[in-house]
Amino acid sequence: MSGVNRLTVALGLSAIVLSVATIVGLPAPLQAVAAIAVLVLLPGQALARLTQVTDVALAVVLVLAIGLGTLTVVSTAMFYLALWSWQACVVTMGVITVLACIVRARQEVA
């Protein structure tokens, strides 16, 4: 793991843990927090880091826009393919987050 940023590792691991926790189910307020994190914030953050944005304000807005935009694409595609379930969306967004973290980790090692 030498050379890989801790934030990259934390994002990837958080996506895995929170995806499982969201699907298994959590008490009411925690379920909402975990779902928003795994569906929007974590993939948004992981993908926004690939854009190499350095301006903090732009990065914050991009996390939200990319997270919401990616979830929209994933959900819409699943509806058109008649594959939609919210659990499938959670898994897909978790996988996207992990893949983005792997790409980022390879950039960091290189």
């Binding site: 379920q31 779902a35 569906l39 929209t72 509806f79 058109y80 008649a82 939609w84 969306c89």
Partner: peptide, 30 residues
């Protein structure tokens, strides 16, 4: 979330992006 994308229902089902997002968020967050 119940019947999927049926463009014949009305205009909303021809531009379903936001509603797909909303359906997923509401179901997952509770």
């Amino acid at each position: 979330s119940q019947v999927g994308v049926d463009p014949g229902i009305d205009a909303y089902f021809n531009w379903p992006g936001f509603f797909a997002l909303l359906a997923t968020m509401l179901a997952a967050t509770g």
